[in-house]
Design a protein around this nucleic acid. Structure first.
Length: 263
DNA sequence: ATGTCCGCTCTAAGCGGA
């Protein structure tokens, strides 16, 4: 079972890239962020032709999240992060996929920081932590995946000193991410590769991809009820090099079948 | 500061957002 998260940065503009990657990688479940499409402009038909069912929450111009799945029942649980009915950004969707709960999130960027956008980011993070704690209390298999817009540690950025004044690397969101994971989640990629340099994002500017001047922003967190099934994880970095690609690359995990977990 | 993309808009270049 392969589960991925991919900030697509405009699902219609990048549909050929998405379809090409789906054919190549054959993920079972994908969490998508930054659809940049209203609800009725989601390419449902093209994805169905590729074999994927979808639940999504669009928004005009910005944000937008979706969960797509192949060969698995998919049932939407909620399409907003609890805790603020006045928050109209489409940044969260949650669905039961097969026998697990899949949560797809797009955490606010927060720049420029400090400022109101940074305050919104931290308020959103606080709500996420509260909801994540609730999810853990359910004691079920949960995948909490998405674009967290947080560089967790200095290992996750090519040049930490360049990012000190950026909301992605401010102490507050890094602390919040650490506390979130500390609730009992497993950061899949870091769990399997504690010391490797692994990025999921490369700026469009200054030939960042060519220089491997990247950031690790996209994370797949696992609840204890599913973490023992983790057998592999990675980033499909080459996709970032394709024509008309997103500035993010897909990050993925491979889970063993139920009942085939080691120790 | 710059750089590059997206989708939107009084459908052209200019805007916000990232």
């Amino acid at each position: 079972m392969k589960i991925a998260t991919y900030n697509i940065n405009g699902i219609n503009g990048r549909l050929p890239v998405l379809l090409k990657w789906l054919r190549e990688a054959e993920p079972d479940i994908v969490c998508l962020q930054e659809l940049k499409a209203p609800q009725d402009k989601f390419p449902e038909k093209a994805l169905r032709n590729a074999g994927y069912h979808a639940v999504w929450h669009g928004q005009k111009m910005w944000n937008g999240v979706a969960i797509i799945a192949k060969g698995l029942p998919l049932e939407e649980v909620r399409n907003a992060l609890p805790g603020d009915d006045g928050d109209l950004h489409s940044r969260y969707i949650e669905a039961i996929v097969g026998k697990m709960l899949v949560c797809c999130l797009y955490l606010p960027n927060g720049n420029p920081a400090p400022g109101p956008k940074f305050d919104y980011k931290m308020a959103w993070f606080k709500r996420l932590k509260k909801h994540a704690k609730y999810l853990l209390s359910e004691e079920v298999p949960v995948v909490l995946a998405g674009d967290y817009n947080v560089i967790p540690t200095e290992k996750d950025v090519y040049k930490p000193e360049r990012w000190m004044d950026n909301a992605l690397f401010f102490p507050e969101p890094r602390k919040a991410y650490k506390e979130l994971v500390g609730q009992g989640w497993i950061d899949s990629i870091r769990h399997l590769y504690p010391d490797e340099t692994i990025y999921t994002f490369w700026d469009y500017f200054r030939n960042a991809y060519g220089r491997n001047a990247g950031l690790r922003l996209d994370h797949l967190l696992l609840s204890p009820q599913i973490a023992p099934r983790l057998v592999a994880a990675g980033v499909d970095k080459h996709v970032r090099g394709w024509e008309k690609s997103s500035d993010h690359a897909p990050a993925w995990i491979e889970l063993a079948d139920e009942g085939e977990t080691q120790s």
